[in-house]
Design a protein around this nucleic acid. Structure first.
Lengths: 255, 255
DNA sequence: CGGGCGTTTGAACGTGCTCAAGAGGAGTGG
DNA sequence: CCACTCCTCTTGAGCACGTTCAAACGCCCG
């Protein structure tokens, strides 16, 4: 049975101030404690989804967005031929549901890849808050801009190898932002999910993974990835994250 | 020589109130004349670019975004191998530069595909305005959400035919939003631009165009496209714009 | 008028898809 | 606790789509 569940954040002892991913989410380094407390005031509920439970389905109406507090989710839609098109993966600190705000109706579905907790952010309350606090408004704008960059960057590659490498680099850098070690990065999505995300057959995804292991670039074992040669991976991909990744990341995280 | 030029909007007799694309831009149907006037107060300048002139280059610092008032632009970056990766095409009413706000630095370059006029929107002033006016704040959030949807939807296809069709459908629906007839839609980008946008060789783009003409789906002549059989094109693409396109569009435009 | 860019077409090659089949693992129900 | 099913991962073989390379043409612009 579906296990979608709403709890109060206070009951779960979850606050923005104590959130390990706050540096990627609505709080920013420039906010003082009272500003962050205003976020806690409007974000009162937490949505719990277990693995394979849906956070929401396409076509549902909505006036909220979500922030991943713990876990990870897959965003997708079903095309006219019944194929699942994966549009995004979300990790702690990511805002979920931004695409739906323009007409208060989801056009994508979101499902948990593992046990996950998501902060429920009422859009109207957030708007009011952004009008009161310049810091929160600017932060929100920065987050949406950063998301546009990030979303765009992944599927630029032409060959399957480029696309796989860019995808993995994207995951890796998002893990770095979250201070997660590059040893044994957990990949909660299946290879089929990745293939539906990249528009590549799942057999090719598998073969590319094998190939990258044969090249001693990384190791994937038991759905956990260990990066061996990041520079080699960057060379195989199409994006130059290496250019000024630290600056880029820091400037956003600090903003 | 580059012909980037800044003029005053009043000198060009350009106002938000009289803009033909205002229904896609910051003004919304819910704003009264005084609210729209506040937009005109902060948007005082117009940037003029001729064909092949750059609006801005990657790595330039910025504290402004732009709105296409007239014309069209191409957004791109150059990858490690020197290949041009086209990331977007912008038409009247579109906001340009949103990806850059998170660290005040462009990571993409934008160049005019034709003679174009773009309203210069200082970000700080816009933020202040959004704090004063809930309508403008909500409108901005809706636009960013709508852009995320739109950007995502285009490159989902797996086969070259699907990608070409989805691209053309995207152009077509954006033209419809702008009340432009489906006869002789001008395509200011080259087939090479389209190939760099879709990650497909330009020869394949050409062959697909020819094929769609052979199938009596559309006609392309002299960089102008006439749609003959929209339903057939939708069937060849991967996205179902037809599902509730009118509702979707109306709900955003009206928001 | 010449040069360069964009478009068009053909031919051969190669990447990645499709189809097929089996192994391993997780979850479910008896 | 085991048997069963379904899902995921894996590997192979053949094929098709799309790329690459090449060449020619038209067109715009200097």
């Amino acid at each position: 049975m579906p296990n979608k569940l709403i709890k109060s954040r206070t009951a779960m002892n979850a606050t923005c101030a104590a959130c390990p991913s706050r540096h990627l989410c609505l709080p920013s380094k420039f906010m003082d404690k009272s500003q962050i407390a205003t976020l806690d005031r409007i974000i009162q509920k937490m949505m719990i989804v277990h693995k394979n439970d849906h956070l929401y389905y396409s076509h549902e109406t909505t006036k909220t967005i979500y922030a991943v507090y713990k876990g990870s989710c897959k965003e997708y839609w079903i095309d006219g031929n019944g194929n699942e098109c994966v549009t995004n993966f979300y990790f702690p600190g990511d805002l979920v549901g931004l695409e739906s705000v323009s007409d208060n109706k989801h056009m994508l579905s979101v499902v948990g890849l593992e046990y996950s907790e998501l902060c429920v952010i009422p859009l109207d309350d957030l708007c009011k808050l952004m009008q009161e606090s310049e810091a929160i408004l600017k932060r929100f704008i920065n987050i949406t801009g950063y998301k546009m960059r990030n979303d765009r960057s992944v599927k630029m590659g032409v060959t399957a190898e480029e696309r796989i490498c860019d995808f993995l680099l994207n995951i890796i850098y998002r893990m770095l932002e979250r201070n997660i070690s590059l040893d044994n990065i957990p990949l909660f999505m299946s290879q089929l999910d990745i293939s539906n995300y990249l528009g590549i057959s799942h057999e090719t995804v598998n073969r590319m993974f094998k190939n990258l292991q044969r090249l001693q670039v990384l190791k994937i074992e038991n759905k956990k990835m260990t990066v061996i040669d990041l520079a080699a991976l960057e060379k195989l991909g199409r994006l130059d994250y290496s250019l000024d990744k630290d600056q880029k990341k820091q400037s956003f995280i600090a903003s």
